[in-house]
Amino acid sequence: MASNRRSNQLVVPQASQALEQMKMEAAQQLGVQIPQDGYYGNVSTRDAGSLGGYITKRLVQIAEQQLSGGNR
């Protein structure tokens, strides 16, 4: 059975709350039910992939805005 260890480490640990908030907002927009217990084993691969893709797209948009110096 898989352990509950995460191999990904945040570069900026203080960003964990913002990333969690972004995950919740993405799930709400996509209509994906986030498990209350934090166990994602029962989330379909399609739903998990769409969440990850949405979050990545949003993070790229934020970085592009910061690099261009604009707030669209």
Rank of each mutant, 00 (worst) to 15 (best):
Q33A: 09
G52T: 04
I62M: 04
Q28H: 14
I34R: 01
E64K: 13
M1K: 12
S7L: 10
A48M: 15
D47R: 02
K23C: 05
L30S: 05
R58C: 00
S50M: 12
Q17L: 07
Q9H: 10
R72D: 10
Q17Y: 05
V12S: 02
E25H: 04
R6P: 02
R46H: 12
S68I: 14
S44M: 06
I55W: 02
N42I: 14
D47N: 10
T56R: 15
E20F: 07
Q61A: 14
Q33W: 07
A48N: 10
Y54H: 14
Q65H: 11
L10V: 00
V32I: 10
Q29A: 15
S3N: 09
I62S: 03
A27E: 00
T45N: 09
T56S: 14
G69L: 08
G70S: 15
G53Q: 07
G49R: 03
R46G: 10
S50Y: 14
P35A: 06
M1G: 13
E25M: 08
E20S: 11
T56W: 09
D47M: 05
D47Y: 02
Y40E: 12
N71G: 08
P13T: 00
Q14H: 04
Q61W: 06
A63Y: 11
G38C: 03
I55E: 00
Q9D: 07
R72Y: 14
A26R: 02
R58N: 07
Q28D: 11
G31W: 03
I55P: 00
V43L: 13
A63Q: 13
A48Y: 10
I55V: 15
V43W: 02
A18C: 04
A63N: 10
Y39G: 12
G69M: 06
N4Y: 08
L59S: 08
A18Q: 04
Y39D: 14
L51K: 01
R72W: 15
S3V: 02
L67S: 13
Q65C: 13
